[in-house]
Design a protein around this nucleic acid. Sequence first.
DNA 1: CTCATTGTAATTCATGGTATTACAATGAGT
DNA 2: ACTCATTGTAATACCATGAATTACAATGAG
Lengths: 144, 144
Amino acid sequence: MQFSFRMPVAAQILLCIAKFDGVFKTTSNFLASSVNINPVIIRKTLGQLKSAGLVEVAAGVGGAKLVKDPEKITLQEIFNAVEDDEDLFHIQDNPNPQCPVGRNIQQVLGRRLSTVKEHMLEDFSRITLADLLNDINNAEQNRQ
Amino acid sequence: MQFSFRMPVAAQILLCIAKFDGVFKTTSNFLASSVNINPVIIRKTLGQLKSAGLVEVAAGVGGAKLVKDPEKITLQEIFNAVEDDEDLFHIQDNPNPQCPVGRNIQQVLGRRLSTVKEHMLEDFSRITLADLLNDINNAEQNRQ
DNA sequence: CTCATTGTAATTCATGGTATTACAATGAGT
DNA sequence: ACTCATTGTAATACCATGAATTACAATGAG
């Protein structure tokens, strides 16, 4: 069990936009070929990133641009842009109200797990797009 | 997108076993009625918890018991018992090797995200079954 | 031996993520 | 104004997986 593609795809999209800014027009087809995923998924994701105020997309002409500096874009924003705001874990909806464990489990576990999720988001908030871009550039250098 | 029932169910099972120790025989049917889930799922989960060395199950007779004190059982153990050891996020398997972003994204994002997962597991390791049992008992008191 | 229970396999069902097709709307370039 | 590549979005199909369910042999105390 793991989270879906969404956040990693969104991150890769933003990395490409940042990396190829001014060099290539980053259309959904261009981005799709980097990620190796369907262009429609790219457009949908770009729409979510646009709603989150991270990019602007040129309808008609094509291509996307960052609205904020890579230093100002965190993985938390990216995560929130493409994932619903829901609990980390699915806790059974209808536990037995007759059972002292069942009738309290949602509240008890829910509280504990929401703290864990908050910490995860804090971790994400400390990772910026600039960090990732740096990582990519370093990895490219080491490759040679 | 969220994690499945598994870990919360496993936690509830262990809580019931701890809570009803010596009072009721905690068969899969008994546990299933507290969680309100199919008994087969309970048995499968109990099997995983047994493999992890957290409980012992009386085949034939029925009923399960904790092998360790609730203070010694952490949410991390429970999580690892029922979830595969895999990355937190699914990162695209076949990114474009021609693209400088595509050919490095797995390594770069993977490293960052595995750190986040480690932190999550550390959080889990600080929550014990005894903590949850306490939470349940407190919630029960406040209910009156 | 009996019988409730476990362990496990097999099957079905439902959900949700991803792929794909299709097409109207957009808007710079001519 | 027209063209045309591209976006935005709906609709549909497909598939993987989690959960429910059925079935039954194996277990082991009484």
